[in-house]
């Protein structure tokens, strides 16, 4: 009989194991141990590998509004996705922001003693707001948590167009086209 405890760091770990059939259990902060899948592993005589998944049952509600705090005017549409700390790698599918500015992430990990840190990037907002430009960091410490994210209203911009040779002479009619970079 041989038992092994394999430390997993950033999703990966390894161990030299005797060949045989093993039952597998997990201990992971913020996760439900009973959700591990699969729960068996067969180590052969040669090098091998196994991939496991585990899930949590926390619920995170992100509310996007004009103040970034409770009570602000919410945006009416958009999307947001979970990412790594840099925002470069996306995890899972983007979640739609509804008409009340809410995006709900189910099955997220949490821990009261050592809050689980999650990262998000807002991909879209509605026509009247600027999306949050950075990475949104959330410390999940409870099973149900609500966080607010600022989406500032787009600001009115005033332009003048005058004749280059006759100072102050307004151009009677023209269209200025602005292309985003």
């Amino acid at each position: 009989m041989a038992n092994y405890n394999v430390q997993i760091t950033n999703g990966q770990g390894s161990e030299s194991m005797k060949s045989g059939n093993y039952s597998v259990a997990v201990s992971a902060t913020g996760y439900e141990a009973t959700t591990l899948s699969p729960t068996t592993y067969t180590a052969g005589v040669s090098a091998g590998s196994g991939s496991f998944t585990v899930s949590a049952n926390g619920v995170l509600t992100l509310i996007f509004n004009e103040t970034g705090a409770e009570g602000g005017t919410p945006i009416t549409s958009g999307s947001v996705v979970m990412t790594d700390s840099t925002g470069a790698t996306e995890y899972g599918s983007a979640i739609t922001i509804d008409a009340s500015g809410q995006a709900v992430f189910n099955n997220v990990p949490y821990d009261a003693n050592s809050p689980y840190v999650l990262y998000f990037v807002q991909k879209e907002t509605d026509a009247g707001h600027n999306p949050y430009s950075g990475v949104i960091t959330v410390n999940m410490a409870s099973a149900s948590q609500t966080e607010y994210v600022l989406n500032s209203p787009i600001a009115a911009q005033t332009f003048t167009l005058t004749d280059a040779n006759y100072a102050g002479l307004p151009v009677a009619s023209a269209t200025l086209s602005f292309t985003g970079e």
């Binding site: 009989m1 041989a2 038992n3 092994y4 405890n5 394999v6 430390q7 997993i8 760091t9 950033n10 999703g11 990966q12 770990g13 390894s14 161990e15 030299s16 194991m17 005797k18 060949s19 045989g20 059939n21 093993y22 039952s23 597998v24 259990a25 997990v26 201990s27 992971a28 902060t29 996760y31 959700t35 899948s37 592993y41 180590a43 052969g44 005589v45 040669s46 090098a47 091998g48 590998s49 196994g50 991939s51 496991f52 998944t53 585990v54 899930s55 949590a56 979970m82 790594d84 995890y91 899972g92 189910n106 099955n107 997220v108 990990p109």
Partner: peptide, 25 residues
């Protein structure tokens, strides 16, 4: 023999930052 393991979040598929997998023969 060397056995390598991966552990991901089931729903979001991100790697679990820290965990212990317990194997019992």
């Amino acid at each position: 023999s060397e056995q390598r393991f991966c552990l991901y979040d089931e729903f979001y598929r991100f790697p679990i930052s820290s965990a212990v997998l317990e194997f019992e023969n």
